[in-house]
Amino acid sequence: MAKRSVWSDNRFWQRSAAWITGFASVLLIWLTFDTMAQITIGTDEDLKNGVTKRVPSPTVINYKITYEMSTKRGHEVPIIGGNDGQGMSLFQEKEMFFGRDDWSEEEATELLHLGKLGSQVKNCMNCHTLLGNGAYYAPDLTKAWLDPQWGPNGSMQAMTGKNTKEEAMAEFLQNPSKYPTHARMMPNLGITAEEAKGLVAFLKHMSSIDTNGFPRNFGKIEGAVHGK
């Protein structure tokens, strides 16, 4: 019989499996604590004090949101309430959301809660992608709030007969098949006016999440460039 080597010993591999699995799990849990601290939803105070959060307070719906290049980070970041010129948010410039820019933390939280519930119950994720995850049958919604299609130069405000982005979106969500943009249409999901408001708040909030530059060049390129 050949001399027993440690490499061909089942117990050695059994222990390696246990140790490596344990080590990887501990590392994952430790990183989870760190990540959780960084992605916990911010507060209205943070916004007022100019503290940048990866996931800002729901009251971010009171502010103007854009998606601009940060030279420091080398990719685009959400800019809340104006750019300081270096790719950092100023948290100054407000923007009306359904006619108001003074949504309290409580009201905004309630609206976001309704919107998030709606996004799950209406099964958004099984056609669209949210933060890039979901199905691929309809456009990604990560930065949908910032999509030029819904802006003053886009076609959706005129189509729905509304003057603001949020009202156009809410109108569309309530009667999607009335405003078809392509042969592939969004079905009517029985979304009420209140739910639509919540969903739009959810979308606006999602566009303010720092996604490390995903998606790249969003909304910067207008007009189709087919082929090369």
């Binding site: 290049m69 080398g74 685009e76 060049n217 910067k220 390129i221 207008e222 007009g223 090369k228």
Partner: peptide, 15 residues
């Protein structure tokens, strides 16, 4: 309508 400071593809289109 392309702002050259914005378009910074890490990967060239034909790559």
């Amino acid at each position: 309508m392309i702002d050259p400071s914005v378009i910074r593809p890490e990967i060239a289109l034909d790559a």
